[in-house]
Amino acid sequence: MAYFEGVKMTAGYGEGPDIISSCSITANRGEIVAILGPNGAGKSTAMKAMLGLLKLKSGSVTLNGEDISKINPQDRVKKGISFVPQTRNVFAELTVRENLEIGGFLTEGSLENKIESIYSLFPILSEKKSQVVGQLSGGQRQQVALGRALMSDPSVLMLDEPTAGVSPIVMDELFEHIIKVKKTNVAVIMVEQNAKQALSISDRGYVLVTGQNKFEGSGIDLLEDPEVRRSFLGA
């Protein structure tokens, strides 16, 4: 049994049709799992279902063996799941340091050590700590977003398209940071559009099509699978 599991999840928005049906995703601590697929495949929906942002019609979500399907997102955050949304994932009006402080909002006592460790993970944040995040570049903002999410000492980090809209150079840098995060014994789940690059750093990957698991396997296997290559990697 994996550390964090979404088992046979079926869900949709409100009364609308099911976006994902019987979709399963698992992740262990210390690995990166990529969720890939064409537009509208339900990648983000699957992730939001695991966070509890929408209600499951069937299936379950477990964390370390405990069923958390009925718990609301705030309480899942308290249990160690952290989420970085695709857009509006920082507090643009607050300084870098304040963003980190809010990230550790639920932590009792001093945040100094935690903040220092984030600074050593993302050195640029230490330089810009008193600056308002709204004034930072796109890549730097993404680092703030990651840093904020890591402040709550999560065991699971979920990233919704962390490299959307950044330049290729910044993308590589961000992926490097994500690998660093993984090495701190965190389970990283990310939804990605840049499939090739994502798979090359992932331990495992899932390809969703119309809300269902189509392929799954290790990053390298998927990269080399001819059918996956033909349909999703464009080569």
Binding site: Q74, V77, R88, F91
Partner: peptide, 10 residues
């Protein structure tokens, strides 16, 4: 500044 993210931060 950002209500949704604030909720996600607890």
């Amino acid at each position: 500044d950002n209500e949704d993210l604030a909720l996600l931060s607890g």
